[in-house]
Design a protein around this nucleic acid. Structure first.
Lengths: 250, 250
DNA sequence: CGGCACTTTGATCGTGGTCAATAAGTGTGG
DNA sequence: CCACACTTATTGACCACGATCAAAGTGCCG
C-alpha cells in the first residue's frame, strides 16, 4: 500500500458536484454527494489517499478497526474467513462506497482489492469529530449504511431462495448496474474477479459458476469480451431469470 | 393494531437506566441505551405506543416508509416476497430493535409480528427533527444500523457456506443469545415461530428444519419444553457445529 | 368430538458439490 | 522465441444433501 499524501483526496473521491473531480467513479454515488463544498473541503483535509495493488489486503478480519476507507476507483471485496478455513464473500464494493465501518473495535470481516484500487483513508476519531461539526455528513453516512443494509438483505434473499442460475444472472446484472451508476456506459463489464471469487460471493463452487456462465453464453445471453470481461447481450432474459420471476423451469 | 396513546412510550421501550422501565425487554440493548434522560423524555413524546397481535403485519413491502418502530416486547420477523410468490425471511427482531428504517421512500420488505408485540411508532420526520436537536440520538441509531449490518452479513455467510445442520444450530444459539441479552435467564427458549418460519429464515424447507431439530433431540443436545419451546442442553455441541468449526463430518 | 394447522417421518428425485482430467492463459528464464 | 511452470477456466462423471411428494401423527380450539 502506498500513501500519496493528503491532497484533498476526499473531494476527489466523493464529490458529486458537476465540474469537479472529472475522472472519479464516485462522482454520482459518493459518500459526499449532496454535501456543501465547504464541508467537503474540511472532510478532505482529514483523509489520506492510499493505493492498493490487486489482491492486496485493505484490512484484515480481526484487525483493529480504527480507520474507514472511501473507495475512489477500483473494485474491492469484503470476505469472512471461518475458523475451519472456509471463506465467503459478503459483497463487492466500488468507487463511492465506504468500507471499514464496524460496530466493534475489531473488523469482523476483511477487505481486499480485486483491481488496482485508489481509496481515501480517514480515522474513526477524525470522522467522529467531523460528525459533530457537520451533522449533514453523518446523515449522509447513515443513509449509505441503510442502503448497504438493504442491498445486503437482497443478497440474503438471493442466497436463501435463488437457484445457481438465478444467482449468477443477478450477479451479472448487479455488476452492470453498479457500473452504469458510476457512469461507465456500454454493454461490456469487467468482472475483475475469478470464478472462485464469484463462487464465494454467491455461495457456489467455481465449477458451478463456470458451468452457468457457459450456459448463458450458449443461450446467447452473454458474450466473452477479452479474458475477464463479459458483454451482456440480453439483459431482459437475464433479468427474467434473476429476480424471482422464473419458477425454476417446470 | 391498537393505538394506546402516547404515554412516554419510548422511555418505556428504550431506556437503559436502572430503576426505570422494569418490565421492558429493551432495557439493556435498546435504541436509547446511553442517552441522557432529558433526550429520552423528548424522544418519547414524539412516539406512539402500538400493539400487534400474532401474525399481524407491522408494515407491508411496498408501503410508504414514513414511520419507524422501536420494538418493546415480543418478536417480529422481516420478510421479502418475490414476484413469483416465493418468500424469504431476512431476520427476526426483538425488544430493543428498531425496524422500518428504509433508504427508499417505500419499504423494500415487510414486517410481521410473531408473538403479541408492543412497539413504539415514530414518524420519520419527527425523528429527523430529533436528530438535529440531539446528534447523540443519531449516533446511537447509526451504531444500531452498523450492528444490524454486521449481523446480516454473518447471516449471509451462514447461508452461503453452512449446511442445514449448522444453520439450525446457529439459529438456536442466536435465539438464545438474543434472549439472554434481553435479560431472560434460563435454558428454555420460546421459538415463537413455526418450522416454516424458521425454514424461510434459514433458506431450508420446513421438513429439513423438522428433521434437523429431531436429530438434535436424539443426540441429547436439546429437549422440547412445551409446544413451541426448546431447552438447550448442550450449547457446546451446538456451537461446535454452528460456527464453522465442523468440516461437515468426514 | 370434529376440524384444522402444524409437525414428524418416510420415499424418491434433482441440483449442485466433489473429484478429476484437459485446455487456455500468463509470466519467467534460458 | 520457445520451454516451462503455474494459475485459471472448462467440461465430464459421480455422489450427497436437501427439496419434493406423500402420509401419519399431534395438539389446539370451537
Amino acid at each position: 500500500m502506498t500513501a500519496l499524501g493528503a491532497v484533498r483526496p476526499l473531494i476527489d473521491a466523493l464529490c458529486a458536484r458537476p465540474g469537479s473531480c472529472e475522472g472519479c467513479e464516485a462522482r454520482r454515488t459518493g459518500v459526499c454527494a449532496s454535501l456543501a463544498p465547504d464541508i467537503l473541503a474540511e472532510v478532505s483535509d482529514a483523509g489520506e489517499r492510499v493505493v492498493f495493488a490487486p489482491r492486496e489486503a485493505i484490512f484484515r478480519q480481526g484487525e483493529r478497526a480504527s480507520q474507514i476507507y472511501i473507495l475512489h476507483n477500483g473494485t474491492a471485496r469484503l470476505t469472512k474467513l471461518l475458523p475451519d478455513g472456509r471463506q465467503a464473500s459478503v459483497g463487492f464494493r466500488f468507487g463511492g462506497d465506504a468500507v471499514g465501518l464496524s460496530p466493534e473495535a475489531e473488523h469482523h470481516l476483511g477487505a481486499e482489492a480485486l483491481t488496482e484500487l485508489v481509496a481515501c483513508r480517514i480515522n474513526q476519531d477524525d470522522l467522529s469529530n467531523l460528525f459533530q461539526r457537520h451533522p449533514a455528513l453523518q446523515s449522509r453516512l447513515m443513509q449509505l449504511c441503510t442502503r448497504e443494509l438493504a442491498t445486503t438483505q437482497e443478497q440474503l434473499v438471493a442466497l436463501a431462495r435463488f437457484s445457481a442460475e438465478e444467482r449468477v444472472a443477478a450477479f451479472l446484472l448487479s455488476l452492470a448496474e453498479a457500473r452504469d451508476r458510476r457512469g461507465h456506459p456500454g454493454p461490456v463489464y469487467d468482472l475483475a474477479a475469478t470464478r472462485a471469487d464469484i463462487g464465494e460471493l454467491l455461495g457456489l463452487t467455481l465449477e458451478t459458476v463456470s458451468r452457468t456462465l457457459s450456459k448463458f453464453r450458449r443461450r446467447g445471453w452473454t458474450r466473452p469480451a477479452g479474458s475477464h470481461a463479459v458483454e451482456l447481450l440480453d439483459r431482459k432474459a437475464l433479468a427474467h431469470s434473476a429476480f424471482g420471476h422464473a419458477p425454476p423451469c417446470p
